[in-house]
């Protein structure tokens, strides 16, 4: 299999995953017994009293169905839905922020979420793996065992307890960071990058710590077993320096399963978003989803779920596409 076949296969798989994901998000809400338009119309009717004429209600229903893509039989709806989502990225207007389009709201929130979660996931991956590497490579040194204990202690702590502890320590006992962050309304610019970084530090620290434990423990055991591989022993007998053996021999090989693990953990990134953004009132997609769910904003919920499917699948695709850089056995067969 050549490298192009590898790429073609990954991209093909990516498109299939997206398609299935979009299809499920389309059909799942339609299996619910309630019709959002009935609900909306009855709301308007109760507000207006009995003053609406049946023709007006019928016209309203038809307009709403058009607006929310609920016109025609289910197949027509499906085709229209795919057409709107894929070609125009249009999820209709928001119920709560009518008439602002849902896609605008998502695109405003998405950079916040991606910025926070990508950076903290990758930082936690890098630092966790480096600590795990040292702990595994020098497993017979007492000082390295201390590093492993960090992982063992951090790993089992549930995220919300970890996050609350960090808030308590770093915002209350030692008020280093603000208790509730404030973000400039105009978004990221050169001038306010410092403010944003400072205000994002607390949620970022909790996310890094939460991902830490697992990365340390798994890298430690990987490095420990890789160190016993014949090629590492042979490198030692060749007189290769300790540093080169640890980096070029042990790390380069032990990181491969960890890159795959990074792709998998990027998949769960939006789980983290929901809780983190609620705890820190951080203006990302997680908070948007929560608002949408609690206020019955179907379009917004739809849009943010679809967006997270696309984001997760894309992150996985990117890792798959750069994986051959690390493993020549896939690059040149």
């Amino acid at each position: 299999m050549s490298i192009f076949q590898y790429f073609a296969k990954r991209i093909g798989l990516y498109l299939v995953v997206l398609f299935i994901g979009l299809t499920i998000t389309f059909f799942l809400p339609r299996l619910m017994p309630t019709n959002p338009i009935d609900g909306y119309i009855s709301q308007i009717e109760s507000r207006a009293g009995q003053s609406l004429r049946p023709e007006a209600i019928a016209a309203l229903r038809s307009n709403l169905e058009e607006l929310y893509g609920l016109k025609g039989d289910i197949f027509t709806q499906y085709v229209n839905y795919l057409n709107r989502v894929i070609l125009h990225f249009d999820f209709g207007p928001s119920f709560t922020n009518y008439p602002e389009p849902v896609s605008d709201m998502i695109f405003r929130a998405l950079p916040w979420t991606l910025g926070l979660l990508l950076v903290s996931t990758i930082v936690s991956w890098i630092i966790g793996n480096l600590i795990g590497l040292v702990a595994g490579y020098f497993h017979n040194k007492r000082s390295a065992t201390v590093l492993e204990v960090v992982g063992i202690l951090l790993y089992p702590i549930p995220y919300y307890i970890l996050a609350l502890t960090v808030i308590l320590v770093l915002a209350y006992f030692l008020p280093v960071f603000p208790l509730s962050p404030t973000f400039p309304a105009e978004g990221l610019t050169f001038g306010n990058a410092g403010t944003i970084l400072f205000n994002s530090a607390l949620p970022a620290i909790t996310l890094v710590l939460a991902g830490f434990g697992w990365n340390i423990l798994s890298m430690k055991s990987l490095a420990y077993t890789t160190k016993e591989e014949p090629y590492v022993t042979y490198a030692r007998l060749k007189g290769t320096s300790n540093w080169k053996r640890m980096t070029r021999y042990v790390f380069r090989n032990a990181m491969l399963p960890q890159v795959t693990a990074l792709a998998l953990s990027l998949g769960t990134i939006f789980n983290g978003a929901l809780l983190t953004e609620m705890l820190f009132s951080y203006p990302g997609v997680g908070l948007l989803m929560r608002t949408a769910a609690s206020s019955g904003d179907y379009n917004l919920l739809y849009g943010s779920i679809t967006m997270s499917i696309i984001a997760v699948a894309t992150a996985g695709l990117i890792i798959d596409l750069i994986y051959p850089l690390f493993d020549p056995r896939i690059r040149n067969r």
């Binding site: 014949p230 090629y231 042979y234 490198a235 020549p328």
Partner: peptide, 11 residues
């Protein structure tokens, strides 16, 4: 060494 396959770093 005895086994050349596993004595060379694969990556």
């Amino acid at each position: 060494p005895q086994s050349s396959m596993s004595s060379l770093n694969p990556v």
